[in-house]
C-alpha cells in the first residue's frame, strides 16, 4: 500500500535542513561559512547513511504538536513523582508488570515516536515491539493489583492515542480515538490479575495483512525492508522499526 511503500533513497530536503540547523547550533555561529560546511557534512551524512525517505512533515499540524509536547511534559513530571514516591515508600521493593498492548498505528515512524513517548516517562517503557502482530510489550512499575494493571494499560493506550492524533497521516489521525476505544474495550477487566493476549486493533491488522499480500505479490522486489516474522519467537527487530526515527 502507498503508506508503506518505500520512496527510494533520494535525499530528503527536510532532513538536510535539519542537519544543517543542528550543525549551526552545535557551532553556535550563524554565518554563511558555517552553513556551507554544514551543508557539506549533511550531504556526506545522508549519502553514507541513507534513510528511507518519507513524506513526513511533523509541522503539518503545529497545534497538535504543542498539545503533544504539553501532554508529554505533564506525563513526564507526573510519572516521575509517582515513581519516586512509590519507590521511596516501598524502600526499593518493586512490583511491576509486563503487559501486551495493541499498537494503534501501522506506520513505522508513528510507532517509533509513540514508543519513544511512552518510554520517556519513568516507570514505563516499551520492552519489545512485535511489529507484524501489532503488539507492544510494555514494562510498568508500580503495578500491584489487577486494577493497577488496567490503569497502566489505559495510560499507555491514551498516550499512543495522542501521538497518533498528532503525528498520524490523513487516514490514521482521525481514527486514533476509535482505535484507542477499541483497544480499551477489548481488554478483559476482570479483578483477577492474569496474563492476557490481546488481538491487534482491527484496522492495524487489516493494514498489515494488506501489506503482506502486496509484498508476496511483488515477490522480493522490495529488498526485504520489513523483518519477516514467521514464528512468534521471531518478533520483528526493534532496530528495524527505529530506522526512521531520527
Amino acid at each position: 500500500m502507498p503508506r508503506r511503500r518505500r520512496h527510494g533513497n533520494r535525499i530528503a530536503p527536510s532532513l538536510m535542513i535539519w542537519l544543517v540547523v543542528v550543525w549551526m547550533l552545535l557551532w553556535g555561529t550563524f554565518d554563511v561559512a558555517t552553513a556551507v560546511y554544514g551543508l557539506l557534512v549533511a550531504l556526506i551524512v545522508l549519502v553514507v547513511f541513507p534513510l528511507p525517505s518519507h513524506r513526513w512533515n511533523i509541522f503539518h499540524r503545529p497545534w497538535r504538536l504543542v498539545i503533544l509536547a504539553g501532554y508529554v511534559i505533564v506525563d513526564l513530571v507526573g510519572s516521575a513523582v509517582r515513581f519516586f514516591v512509590d519507590t521511596l515508600r516501598e524502600s526499593g521493593r518493586v512490583s511491576a508488570a509486563i503487559m501486551a498492548v495493541p499498537v494503534l498505528s501501522d506506520v513505522d515512524h508513528v510507532i517509533a515516536s509513540a514508543a519513544n513517548v511512552v518510554s520517556l516517562a519513568p516507570g514505563t517503557f516499551v520492552l519489545q515491539i512485535d511489529r507484524s502482530r501489532g503488539i507492544w510489550y510494555v514494562y510498568t512499575t508500580g503495578v500491584r493489583t489487577a486494577e493497577d494493571a488496567h490503569k497502566a494499560y489505559d495510560n499507555v493506550v491514551d498516550m499512543q492515542h495522542v501521538v497518533v492524533w498528532a503525528f498520524g497521516d490523513e487516514q490514521e489521525a482521525p481514527a486514533a480515538r476509535s482505535r484507542a476505544e477499541e483497544a480499551k474495550r477489548e481488554r478483559d477487566r476482570s479483578p483477577v490479575c492474569r496474563p492476557q493476549q490481546p488481538s491487534p486493533v482491527a484496522a492495524v491488522a487489516a493494514s498489515e495483512a494488506e501489506f503482506r499480500n502486496a509484498e508476496s505479490r511483488n515477490g522480493e522486489s522490495d529488498g526485504g525492508g520489513e523483518a519477516g516474522a514467521d514464528g512468534p519467537d521471531d518478533v520483528a527487530e526493534v532496530d528495524e522499526n527505529r530506522r526512521e526515527d531520527r
Binding site: A97, M99, R144, C193, P232
Partner: peptide, 14 residues
C-alpha cells in the same frame, strides 16, 4: 517482582 508477564507467556506459547 513481576505481577504478570505477558511476554514470557507469549514466548512460551510460541
Amino acid at each position: 517482582t513481576l505481577v504478570v508477564d505477558e511476554l514470557a507467556q507469549r514466548l512460551r506459547s510460541g
